[in-house]
Design a protein around this nucleic acid. Structure first.
Lengths: 221, 221
DNA sequence: TATAATGTTTAGGTTTGCCTAAATATTTTG
DNA sequence: CAAAATATTTAGGCAAACCTAAACATTATA
């Protein structure tokens, strides 16, 4: 069994590993966990002793197979709880993260399996992120960003890269949600702002916004 | 906000206060929390500084009004989670305690209110214990024990005093559950064992068992 | 490529919540 | 009611997980 702190480190390392190929640096972890670099070094050594990470002084860490498995169990729990909060308790998608951060540490396999069953084994969480199964398998994360689409594309919003409340609330205000079908009409060369249509309504999407929206692209018109 | 440890102390003090009128002793807390007496003393001082308990050296502690309120919030959460586990996730009544011990510490008023609503504002948990409302009000705990009933009484099982898995499983085996209507037919003078009938089936109930079953008594035949 | 800038680790300190052992209070009992 | 038994508190330590400041490595740049 692991402490909450250890679980948070494993999760953080997993997420940072997704982005960069190389070992995860102390400073990246420090920034993500909002913990001083010296504390990171200390904990990382402990994780290495428990064979959850491989650690090379000055060159960062990476998860071992057991570490990765453990990280995925925690991520599975986090995302299932998020689904539960939205689907059963009518939480909004911008309200779930903080509570799920707590719930993910509850230790009971039976509990999380029951939640999974109650929800009908969902494949993605309210932000479009995939939910690993019990063995840690999960369908690769969405990769296409709206910002990278060609003018003329039609597609569906399937996920958000940034799931901070402020971004999610902004999307709500713009009437952009997961599942929203759009038509990419125009790209402004000056600032890369986009214009998409959703139900024949024109919506302006800044480059920054577009680079935080995952999409499934359909046929090009 | 309180630490999990502090919350556990408040809960423990509350429960012990229910039994004895006097201040709760260090040794009672030590036994219940399975923590050495010296640690109890230390923590109790801290709680006193935060005005959650009144503490008199060598004479035990009692909750202040704020301490009591806080304890009731935790107990409310514990019992609502127990209901949730049984009613929504098909846990058995002997499986809920351990998980609820963890869930009770989740910090989100919105969450527990949503669970309460989802369950239709239940008044008692799966062991028959009353669930305090948001303000800490709750209907007094059941007081009549089966062991104190007169021969000839009819009544209903409404709660258990001991909610250890082993006792609860034993009740399951005997087909005694909350809501079970019984008829107290006989009391053996030698060992105070009882014979009750439930649906015309005779069930032998030891004194120890009977003294852990709360009942509502109807008319005496 | 030497030096400056940046990133990482080490050393030493803090708080929380626990522990053991010793000291002190209270309670029980001969 | 004094001695013995029991309960409680104090004193001093420990592990986890954080911190700051200083030392040391790596990387960037003049």
């Amino acid at each position: 069994m692991f402490t909450q702190s250890e679980e948070n480190y494993l999760k953080a390392i997993f997420h940072l590993q997704q982005e960069a190929e190389k070992g995860v640096s102390t400073s990246k972890l420090s920034a993500l966990l909002e913990t001083k670099a010296s504390s990171i070094t200390e904990m990382v050594k402990k994780l290495a002793e428990k064979n959850l990470v491989n650690y090379q002084k000055y060159y960062g860490v990476e998860l071992t197979d057991t570490g990765r498995k453990q990280a995925l169990i925690i991520i599975r729990k986090h995302r299932l709880w998020e689904c539960f909060l939205v689907e059963q308790l009518d939480f909004k998608w911008d309200e779930v993260h903080e509570v799920a951060e707590q719930l993910e540490h509850i230790k009971s396999e039976k509990l999380i399996d029951a939640i999974d069953r109650l929800l009908g084994h969902p494949k993605t969480d309210p932000h479009g992120d995939p939910i690993p199964d019990k063995d840690g398998n999960f369908t690769k994360k969405n990769t296409s960003l709206l910002s990278e689409c060609r003018v003329g594309s039609i597609g569906i919003i399937v996920g958000v890269k940034d799931s901070s409340p402020s971004f999610l609330q902004y999307l709500d205000k713009q009437c952009i949600a997961l599942g929203t079908k759009f038509n990419l009409r125009h790209k402004e060369p000056f600032d890369n702002a986009l214009e998409i249509t959703v139900n024949d309504q024109v919506i302006k999407v800044s480059h920054k916004m577009a680079s935080n929206l995952y999409v499934d692209i359909g046929y090009t018109s």
